[in-house]
Amino acid sequence: MVYSSDDKIPVGISACLTGQAVRFNGSHKRSRFCTDVLSEYFNLRPMCPEVAIGMGTPREPIRLVSDTPADESVRAVGVDSPDIDVTDDLRSEAVKVSDLNQDLCGFIFMQKSPSCGLFGVKRYLKNGHPEGKASGIFASEFARLNPLLPIEEAGRLNDAALRENFMVRVFTYRDWQLFTQTTVTPARLIDFHSRYKYLIMAHSTVLYKDAGRLLSDLSGDINQIADEYFALLMTALAKP
């Protein structure tokens, strides 16, 4: 099936993954899977938080730094100039991107990036010694603001199971967006659940039962019940 640009699902993506030369050294990290395959279904919306906050290209690289090994808080500072601290700017950019792109149905981040990495970004102590892992500043703040949004790292999409899981969640998220564009009624919500109940069961029998109990009494505020149902749905699908 060929999708028109209007039909494609809006998904955010780190700009370097689309081939834009926005990395600190003026290069890119184009993901052919994203640009050549996912672009057939997704309207990829490139974003680079470091460029957006005014850092040039090329630029001094940044890294995640903590005061002590036990300190879980991290700052994004310059590798050669530790007085350069862009932590707050990156968090503010995440808020801005979240507010301006509420139609997004997913986000693909660049792995290992101190701004965009989701998992296992190298963390350092002030003396330069590597000490543990953390999440990139922009990515972690964006994920906190959008807890139900499907998000993934480009590198992890090479895993077939993770790739399928991400795409299922994106299509489900979009389906729910379209569903809620029309007034939610008990009958429509039950019909929606009938299309997803076995998918929920496949991911989590516990959440499947929770969804059934939630929908067994629709006499309350239907919009609140719908919101609770969607949270259960996306939580279940997040379990591979």
Score class of each variant (00 low, 15 high):
residue 2 V to H: 10
residue 2 V to A: 11
residue 5 S to Y: 02
residue 5 S to L: 10
residue 6 D to M: 04
residue 7 D to L: 08
residue 8 K to C: 06
residue 14 S to D: 07
residue 15 A to R: 07
residue 15 A to E: 08
residue 19 G to Y: 06
residue 20 Q to T: 07
residue 20 Q to F: 10
residue 23 R to G: 13
residue 24 F to I: 12
residue 24 F to K: 10
residue 25 N to I: 04
residue 27 S to V: 10
residue 27 S to Y: 10
residue 28 H to S: 15
residue 28 H to D: 14
residue 30 R to H: 08
residue 32 R to S: 14
residue 32 R to A: 13
residue 33 F to S: 10
residue 33 F to W: 08
residue 33 F to N: 06
residue 33 F to A: 14
residue 35 T to K: 09
residue 39 S to T: 08
residue 43 N to Y: 06
residue 43 N to I: 02
residue 45 R to D: 05
residue 46 P to Q: 15
residue 49 P to L: 12
residue 52 A to Y: 03
residue 53 I to S: 13
residue 53 I to Q: 15
residue 54 G to Q: 05
residue 55 M to H: 05
residue 56 G to D: 15
residue 56 G to I: 12
residue 57 T to N: 11
residue 58 P to W: 07
residue 59 R to W: 02
residue 60 E to Q: 15
residue 60 E to T: 13
residue 63 R to M: 11
residue 66 S to V: 13
residue 68 T to N: 11
residue 68 T to W: 05
residue 71 D to V: 09
residue 71 D to P: 02
residue 72 E to P: 05
residue 73 S to H: 09
residue 75 R to Y: 07
residue 77 V to T: 11
residue 78 G to A: 04
residue 82 P to F: 05
residue 83 D to C: 03
residue 89 D to E: 15
residue 90 L to C: 04
residue 93 E to G: 03
residue 93 E to M: 15
residue 96 K to Y: 09
residue 97 V to I: 09
residue 102 Q to G: 05
residue 105 C to P: 00
residue 107 F to A: 00
residue 108 I to F: 00
residue 110 M to Q: 14
residue 112 K to W: 02
residue 112 K to T: 12
residue 113 S to T: 13
residue 114 P to L: 10
residue 126 K to T: 12
residue 126 K to I: 13
residue 128 G to M: 06
residue 132 G to L: 06
residue 132 G to E: 12
residue 136 G to T: 08
residue 138 F to Q: 08
residue 138 F to N: 07
residue 140 S to K: 09
residue 142 F to S: 02
residue 142 F to C: 01
residue 142 F to P: 00
residue 142 F to Y: 13
residue 143 A to G: 00
residue 145 L to F: 01
residue 153 E to V: 04
residue 154 A to C: 02
residue 161 A to Q: 02
residue 162 L to Y: 04
residue 162 L to Q: 08
residue 164 E to M: 04
residue 165 N to V: 06
residue 166 F to V: 01
residue 167 M to Y: 02
residue 168 V to H: 04
residue 169 R to G: 01
residue 169 R to W: 01
residue 170 V to A: 01
residue 174 R to T: 00
residue 176 W to F: 04
residue 176 W to C: 00
residue 188 R to P: 04
residue 189 L to K: 06
residue 191 D to H: 12
residue 191 D to V: 07
residue 192 F to E: 15
residue 193 H to V: 05
residue 194 S to T: 12
residue 195 R to Q: 13
residue 195 R to A: 10
residue 198 Y to K: 15
residue 199 L to D: 08
residue 199 L to V: 11
residue 200 I to L: 15
residue 200 I to R: 08
residue 202 A to S: 14
residue 209 K to S: 12
residue 209 K to H: 12
residue 210 D to I: 08
residue 212 G to M: 10
residue 216 S to W: 13
residue 219 S to L: 07
residue 219 S to P: 05
residue 219 S to N: 15
residue 220 G to A: 13
residue 222 I to M: 12
residue 222 I to E: 13
residue 222 I to F: 11
residue 225 I to H: 01
residue 226 A to Q: 10
residue 226 A to Y: 02
residue 228 E to G: 03
residue 228 E to R: 09
residue 233 L to H: 01
residue 234 M to K: 00
residue 237 L to F: 08
residue 237 L to M: 06
residue 238 A to Q: 12
residue 239 K to T: 13
